[in-house]
Amino acid sequence: MSMQAGMRLGASGSGVRALCVLVHGRGQSPEEMERHILRRLDISDVAFALPRAPGGVWYDARAVDPLTDGTRSQLDEALKALHAEITALQGEYPGLPLLLAGFSQGACLSIEYVCRGHAAPDALAALTGCRVGTPSCERPDAAAANLPAYLSGSDADPWIPLAAMAEAALALGGRGLRLRADIFPGRQHEVSDAEIGMLAGMLSDLAAGQDPGLAAAR
């Protein structure tokens, strides 16, 4: 996958205390993530990288479809592109903590990234996400123990079934991640104020040199 130009927003230079790579969902764009998420964050010391998928899609299949060779190939390319984005941002600001975050398909891609066993980010925020594929599919399961992670979902979301989100939470919890999972009954395919509050709290903790407490009000 040839990464098209994404966006860099937020703090820069000596004012940066933490980093965040924020991955958009299917059919979305960095601009939509900026409007719907970043503008709602009261954060001044975080550098944000917002990668862009060609055509707005990281992979064609639904997250809960069985994995095919084609989907695995697309997923591999998307994960390589995400790894390059993370590496580039960390290269600009070496030594600073990084939160990997995503919404919907971007949340699924972020979960898959940590499950591949790459050098782990300092925290994960998967807003409305799940594992890609089904429980019967062969999938990497190498997420780092003790990684602070936040997963969210809804029983009314049309794209990520609640059962798939719960299955991901159980799998990551079983790996020993320091996990909080929130379910928002009736919430549509969007990011709620409570999820924004959690994201802001995680970033503030990282910028202060602390592990995310995952204690934002629900």
Rank of each mutant, 00 (worst) to 15 (best):
P121Y: 12
W159V: 15
I111V: 15
I160W: 03
A123T: 05
H118F: 15
P161C: 10
A107F: 11
P158T: 03
R131I: 08
D122M: 13
C115I: 02
A156M: 07
D157M: 08
P161T: 13
I160Q: 06
L170C: 07
F103W: 09
L147K: 06
F103S: 07
W159Y: 14
A126L: 07
P161H: 14
P148K: 12
G117W: 01
S152A: 09
F103T: 02
V114T: 00
L147I: 11
A169T: 12
A119C: 03
A149H: 08
L124V: 03
A168P: 13
D157G: 15
G106V: 04
P140M: 08
A149M: 06
S154D: 04
P135R: 08
T134N: 05
D157A: 11
S104T: 10
P140A: 14
L170V: 15
L162R: 12
W159I: 12
G117Q: 00
P158S: 07
E138V: 05
E167G: 15
G153V: 10
T134H: 03
S152V: 05
L124R: 03
P140Y: 04
A144Y: 03
D155P: 11
D122C: 13
E138C: 00
S136P: 05
W159D: 13
A142H: 14
A123E: 08
A163Q: 14
L147T: 11
P161K: 15
A149T: 06
M165V: 04
L162T: 00
S154C: 09
L151M: 02
